[in-house]
Nucleic acid binder design. Sequence first.
DNA 1: AATGTAGTCAACCGCAGGCAT
DNA 2: CATGCCTGCGGTTGACTACAT
Length: 268
Amino acid sequence: MEGPLGWGRQEVDGWRKGPWTSQEDKLLVEHVRQHGEGRWNSVSKLTGLKRSGKSCRLRWVNYLRPDLKRGKITPQEESIIVQLHALWGNRWSTIARSLPGRTDNEIKNYWRTHFKKGKPSKNIERARARFLKQRQEMQRSQKQQQQDENEEDGGARAGTDDDDRGSAVVDDACAAPAVVAADEASGGHRHEDLIMQDDAMMDFMCPMSCALLLHGAGVGQGGAAGSCCGSTASEEYGSSEEDGATWGSLWNLEGVVVDDGAGACTLW
DNA sequence: AATGTAGTCAACCGCAGGCAT
DNA sequence: CATGCCTGCGGTTGACTACAT
């Protein structure tokens, strides 16, 4: 903001700034290949790169990661972005987790250029309105369903949850993934009720949802992970150890939005 | 063909949270 | 328990490119 940055040839406090050269990229890629992600501050020591850890991380995450999907945001992705933004606001990294191969920076930029200037396209407006409406209806019907169940079994708990995990507060939105997981295990696709009916969207989101569901159902570790609906969830997203946390937090966040219950929703 | 404008992308900064000491 | 360091996130900026005039 203050002072010209003069990108491209600056060195501040011994750190290079500005655009990365291909040689720097190479060094960073090689480093990550050998040591994995993380410990960004040690990159400069180990590789001789004159880049701060922060800069290295950013470069890797936003540009060098092999699983990045280059190219334009598709209409499907756009819809997802809009809908997730309706849910979560400017939580770009959270939104990005739902879009394999896209970075928070990318999504942020996209949002800024497309929607920030008060010129949301009609498609976007419609998608957003439809989504919010469906969401309301879904909540209503689930509440209804829950009431019915309560009346039926008089307190018998659904599912096989042998742990308590403080889930007495399972609210509507939080209950949804559990329902889905159970259903998915038997080959069903109930999550379309959960999210939206837009076919194109479903085609797109299905692999992700399935990865989530398989994980949630505890069958994701073996070869079964990520193949249903005729498509395959990417390995990067199906096998990493933080997967559970990632997808789990996704749903938890949804719970937060719905009832302001602040993460009281622990499903697995 | 030259110039202006808008859009896109890559990179920076500051801040906050988590973790180790 | 307090402190410092590291990492990740969101906001912002500036360069580059594409398109319109």
